[in-house]
Structure formats: structure tokens, C-alpha cells
Design a protein around this nucleic acid. Structure first.
Lengths: 332, 332
DNA sequence: ATACATTTTGCAACCGGTTGCAAAAAAGGC
DNA sequence: GCCTTTTTTGCAACCGGTTGCAAAATGTAT
């Protein structure tokens, strides 16, 4: 079944080294033998075994793509772009689903067993220590959609959550809302904390505006909906910054069901700008994460680190922008 | 950096064979040497190189997961379950994004270069010939979310699209609609054809009911919305079976925007039951695909075929069921 | 033609493991 | 204790490639 180097060599009447060289960019082979080898290889349908060659070259062209965000619709786009981006550069994604696992030890071992050249942690919820375990194991790694930390031990690519929070705050201020609120995801997620920080920071300069904060139990539709349902029973704010689009849509649903009109009675701004946000029957005003840029930079960084392992950890944060749709009253 | 078998052997004071055996289930090793080996391995932080061993064992435990459905929200769940299911069985998914590629030749070559043990084609739109190319190349393969064909050359797991179409037709008949329609995805998709077939078949027994058929240009929100917008300009039907949930939600959006009330003025039933269908502000009546079962069966089949390559091609179709929500009037 | 520089080639060792086989060690029977 | 059977062990070859090195072939200059 498997056609090997040796078969090709035999058929072409050359040594195995010659065949190997014919398939290696920039190796020393005469055009005559290369032609002989190619003819034989075509006839036999040979393609070199990437894993066998990795043994000596030390490169597998395998990149671990590790995530625990398999319920966030944004991540379908994330996987799409990662796989395409890696493939375009001749790399292969080995997908790892962490599910509820928070200890890196299993996945690190797996990465080593399969000798991945590098790894990308694509997760907005994992702590910095996760990626650090990879680095400690000698695996070139970048934490994609991670958050900013001072003196990071690993490459981090993402958005500036504090700045996003501030941007959301300013969006609400500009539109003249007098009672605003932040509805975060789970309080212990580091990204949630940063967004709250930025939001409150922006509002701090406007003491005339009333601010409150609450946390949904998860980054999910149901959590957003039930949180908003609770809030509406008390004295709700005029406008909410929700830490995520799915959460926002849940909140939106609760508001509509309570008979409130959006954005006249209540305003909502989300974060992510996932596919559904632009569906006209949702039409969510939100803050867009530049997903393509984040992913492009992540891939570049991981490749760079594979080539230059000692490379200093870098943090690349990309700016977000408000996408004007229908769940916030227009700017005056 | 890399601790090898030899390092462990040296440290434990045994031969490399002993170490290899200590890590192989059911090999002949005394408990005494196994203990010595384990101690040495722990101290050194050794884990065996899966790729090196694949060279002799012929098994990589790598499974190609090939898809071109990176825009269908259902597939986030699909990837989640596939990765988890494979991991639980000690297998690793090598993800391949086909994008717009329709020729299997590239991905087949890649599968061979990485010596995958098997492959799963997860796609509702690829033709049967795609998976057949894998089989022809000697790669154990199952086409997941594929469609039924007579005398299939490869394993196919999915739903019975004809039965689903029939089920949708019957749902509309039972609810007393007198003018019904099928809005499919692109006409050339084989699944679309089958769904239309079943739908029309069911209606054929009810000549008193008026039936029409149209096709959206893609399985997307925009396509569904624009198709429905067009339909509403003429004489629309009372109820529509849309070939997909995303399409349905697009159609729903158009209907709502036209000031029609759902389900009083117009009824819609989708297919898939993806996450968003149960969001209360969408609340789509739809037909549920048993995703977990399809994926479980796909994994079992691919494993079975790895172990018994000559195995006869099998088609496993799972039954769907209507999920009652708010876009169809209640059954009388 | 000869001497020398350059390119191309094959040999053989190696990458990190596995495995058939025969020798060595342990266990069992008397 | 000795002999037989069973288990454990190490040797060495092998999986499918790559690569340093020296020999062979080719090209250039005289």
C-alpha cells in the first residue's frame, strides 16, 4: 500500500539519498536525476512521509490548536480562519478540545507526543498560566484572544479589554444615557474584570451618570436572558454594556419579552460582532473584535517563535471599533 | 530538550527494548523492571514519541477531520463533539478546512503524508465521490452528514433527507395549511434535492393543497432573507419548509420586517435545530438532526474500518423529529 | 592531454522508537 | 538438587526518511 522512498529509488535507478534530495528544496541534485525521480514518483504515486522525515529534521509542521471555546459562535469563524491561515503556510492544525480541563498537563504531554512545532491557545477564558506551561515545556506558544498582562511570559495576541470597556462606556455617555450598567460574564474570568475596569474608568469621569454592575453566570444566551429578567424586576438601567454578544442577545430577548422597546426604552451594546449580530432581526450594536488580524498575528508569532525559540514574549493588542446598529439610540 | 527512550534506558539500567515494553500495554515485562523504568521516566519527564512509534506500528492515532462547513453554526457543535469523541478514544483530530476546494486530491495527499489512520468527511454538501477518493487511496473513511445513495462505495452516516422532507410536509399538512412551499438551498446540493423530493412526495397525496418550490442562492441568512423578500412580493404561501435553520431565520426576518405575524400570517419550519433556534427571540419550529448520534456512529465506523479495512460500506441514517416551537401554528 | 575546482552522487550512520528471536533468568515438578 | 517449562531480557534489524562525508563525475583552465 505505502509507496516508500526505496521503491522510487529502485524504479528510478538511483540511491535513496538522490530521491530524498529531489524532494528537498535547494538540495544538490542534477536536473537529469531529478527528472528521473519525478517520473518514477509519479508513476508510483509516491508522496513522502512527513512524520518519518520529521524524525531527522525535527519539524513536523504540526501546530496544536487548543481551545475551550466550543460554544461561542465567534469561534466557528476563529477555527475557520486559523485552519485556513495555517494551511496557507503549509502547516497542519492538530485540534485539541479542552472542554472543562483547566490543567495544561495533559495537553502539553500530547503536544510532545506528537512533536508539534508550536501551539496556539485560542481561548478568551484560560488564565495566562496555561500558555506558560507550554512555554515551560519548551513548546513555542501564543495565547490568542488572551488578555494583557504586565511582564508576560508568553506571546499574547488579542484586544485591549480595558480599552473596550472604556469604549463601551464612552459610547453610552455620548448617547446621553444617564443610568448605565455593565453586565459581565462570570466574574472570575480575567477578560470580564478588565472590561468592567475600563467601563467603570470611563464612567468615573462622569459622576452625574449612575453606574451599576452585575454578572451573568455564564457567557450564554440563557444566562444573559435570566440576568436581564432579574434586573428588570428592580430598577433597570437605561443602557447596558454586555460582555459578549451572546449574552447581549439573551438580554435583548428578555427586554423584548418584557414589552420594552429597544433602543427607546433600553439600550444594549455587545462585544465581538459575531455573525448573528448583523442578522436584521437581532441587529445588535456591538464592538467588533478584529478576528482576522488577531489570527494572522497569532500565526505569524508562532511561526516566528518556532524559527527563533529564544524570542522575547510579545503582547499584541488590536483596536476594536463600535459597529453601529439598532440596539443603541443614535448619537445626537 | 527531548528525552528519548535511550535516556530512560540508560538511567534505569536496562535495554531500550525493556523501556519500550514497559510503555506497551500487554508486553512481557517483569513488574520489577517496569517499576525501575517508570521511576526513571518520571524523573526525566519522558513521554514516548507517538510519531516515531507509528513508523513501526503503522498506527498514528491521527484522524483527518475534513470539512467545508465552517459557516454553518451547527458545525461548531459538530466540531466540539467530534474532537471530544475522538479524544475520549485516544485519537487526535487533524483538522482540514476545504474552503472552496472540491477536488479531493490535495487533502488525500496530505492525509497520506501524515499517515492518518482514518478520515471523517464532515460535510452536508460534498458529493459522494469525495469520500470515495479517500477510499480509493486506501484511507478508511466515513462521510458524516452525507446523504443516502444506493450501493454506496463508502460509509455514510447522516439523516434520511427524503424522510425529513416528508416529515416537514406532513407537519404542514397536519396543521391545516392549504398553500405550502419548499425553500431549498442551492438546487445542486444533493441534500436539497432529497428534501424537496420527500416534501413533494408527502404533498402528492394531498392534491387539494397547493405546493410551490424555490431555491435560495446559498445556505445563508442573507440568501433566505432575500429569497423570502422576493416571494412576499408575489403571492406567498401560508407556510414554508426551509432547507436549513439559517435559511429559515433569514426568511423569518424578512417576514417580520414585512409586517407579517408569525405563525399567524405565515408559518416556517426549519431543519437542523441549531443552538440559535431555541433562542426565545427566534423560537424556530424545526426538525432536529440527532447530531450526537451521527457523530458517535461516525467515529465508531471509522475505528471499525481501521481495524477491519475490507469492511463493507454501510449507510446509517438516523431519524429526525419535529421540535415544536413558535413559528408554526399549533396542531389542531 | 593534465591539473584543479565544482557539482553530483552513494554510503552509512542516524532520528526515536518496535519487535522477532534466541539466550538468560525465574518458576515449577520431581 | 537437577531438569523442564515459562517468563523476562537484550541484541540487532527494521520502520521511512535525512544528511555529513568522501568518492565519482563533470566542468574549466592551461
Amino acid at each position: 500500500m505505502g509507496v516508500t522512498l526505496k521503491d522510487v529509488a529502485e524504479r528510478a535507478g538511483v540511491s535513496t539519498s538522490a530521491v530524498s534530495r529531489a524532494f528537498t528544496e535547494g538540495a544538490s541534485v542534477s536536473s537529469k536525476t531529478r527528472a528521473k525521480v519525478e517520473r518514477a514518483a509519479d508513476a508510483l504515486g509516491y508522496s513522502p512521509n512527513a512524520l518519518a522525515s520529521s524524525l531527522t529534521t525535527g519539524r513536523t509542521k504540526l501546530i496544536g490548536l487548543v481551545s475551550n471555546n466550543f460554544h461561542n459562535p465567534l469561534f466557528l469563524e476563529v477555527f475557520d480562519r486559523f485552519t485556513r491561515g495555517l494551511q496557507d503556510r503549509g502547516l497542519r492544525p492538530l485540534l485539541v478540545n479542552l472542554s472543562d480541563e483547566t490543567d495544561p498537563v495533559h495537553s502539553v504531554r500530547m503536544m510532545r507526543q506528537y512533536s508539534v512545532d508550536g501551539a496556539i491557545i485560542a481561548s478568551s477564558t484560560l488564565p495566562p498560566s496555561f500558555a506558560e506551561a507550554y512555554r515551560a515545556a519548551g513548546i513555542p506558544v501564543v495565547h490568542s484572544f488572551g488578555r494583557y498582562t504586565t511582564a508576560p511570559q508568553v506571546h499574547v495576541v488579542g484586544i485591549d479589554n480595558v480599552a473596550c470597556g472604556r469604549m463601551a462606556g464612552e459610547a453610552l455617555i455620548t448617547r446621553g444615557y444617564k443610568r448605565v450598567a455593565f453586565m459581565g460574564g462570570p466574574e472570575n474570568a480575567t477578560s470580564t474584570q478588565d472590561r468592567a475596569l475600563g467601563f467603570l474608568g470611563a464612567l468615573h469621569e462622569h459622576p452625574e451618570i449612575e453606574v451599576s454592575v452585575s454578572y451573568a453566570s455564564a457567557y450564554s444566551f440563557d444566562a444573559g436572558r435570566s440576568e436581564m429578567t432579574d434586573l428588570l424586576k428592580r430598577t433597570p438601567a437605561e443602557a447596558y454594556f454586555c460582555g459578549d454578544d451572546v449574552l447581549s442577545i439573551g438580554a435583548l430577548s428578555a427586554a423584548q419579552e418584557a414589552g420594552l422597546s429597544v433602543p427607546d426604552d433600553i439600550g444594549i451594546i455587545g462585544l465581538n460582532d459575531m455573525q448573528m449580530a448583523r442578522w436584521q432581526n437581532i441587529n445588535l450594536t456591538t464592538i467588533r473584535q478584529p478576528v482576522a488580524e488577531i489570527i494572522g498575528a497569532s500565526i505569524d508569532l508562532v511561526i516566528g517563535t518556532v524559527e527563533e525559540p529564544g524570542r522575547h514574549p510579545e503582547t499584541r493588542l488590536f483596536p476594536c471599533r463600535v459597529v453601529e446598529r439598532g440596539t443603541l439610540r443614535p448619537r445626537p
